[in-house]
Design a protein around this nucleic acid. Structure first.
Length: 183
DNA sequence: GCCAACGTTGGC
DNA sequence: GCCAACGTTGGC
């Protein structure tokens, strides 16, 4: 570690392939998807949480961090996806109730996701708060997503590993329809 | 700046 | 448990 701390890196959003998700018209709502392993924190856990709300902490990937820090805005709607499940599925809808702020778990040396390179003055990692809105009537499983032509470009399937990904409005509507759910 | 080694995510 | 995809690290 160099004594002079480097500022957190950020994507050149203007040129990046995700540029469009960081800009919006006044009042425009954007859509996202977050992944969680149900054994760790399921959508039912979120529904049972105080105010049905949790901070989405411990994300340690810079691409996902950029979405959390700069992309997600209050009122944006978010699919809740169960990864490492059988089958992995989109199971619920939540919404952003607090915009990007430093992930305090990175500052805690006792925490599993402690990052000594992140400190409160120049935080590396960010999180948002999400609140459960509704459980899907029928979960939409990954094989069904892959089989649906309208979802062939979904970031969820095109880009692996990212625990926070954008969803287009058309994809949002398609998944909601497949789930038999109206908000 | 290149790139090989390594670690992580997450599907299967 | 295996492995593909890909981000990060560090040697050079």
């Amino acid at each position: 570690m160099s004594p002079a701390k480097k500022p957190p890196k950020s994507m050149p959003y203007e040129q990046g392939k995700w540029a469009h998700v960081f800009t919006r018209k006044p009042g425009e709502r954007r859509y996202w998807l977050v992944k969680s392993e149900p054994d760790v924190f399921s959508f039912d856990d979120l529904l049972a949480a105080p105010k049905k709300t949790t901070c989405w902490d411990s994300v340690r990937n810079s691409g996902a961090r950029n979405f959390l820090r700069d992309g997600m805005k209050k009122g944006d709607l978010v699919f809740y996806y169960h990864s490492n499940a059988t089958p992995s599925s989109i199971v619920g809808v939540c919404k952003v109730v607090r915009e990007g702020y430093p992930d305090h778990t990175a500052f805690d040396s006792a925490h599993d996701y402690f990052d000594p390179d992140s400190d409160p003055d120049t935080p590396t990692w960010f999180m948002v708060d999400v609140q459960a809105v509704k459980k899907l009537v029928t979960p939409v499983a990954l094989p069904d997503i892959k089989a649906e032509p309208a979802l062939s470009e979904m970031a969820l399937v095109r880009v692996g590993r990212l625990s926070v990904v954008p969803v287009t409005e058309a994809e949002w509507e398609t998944v909601l329809r497949m789930s038999g759910t109206t908000l």
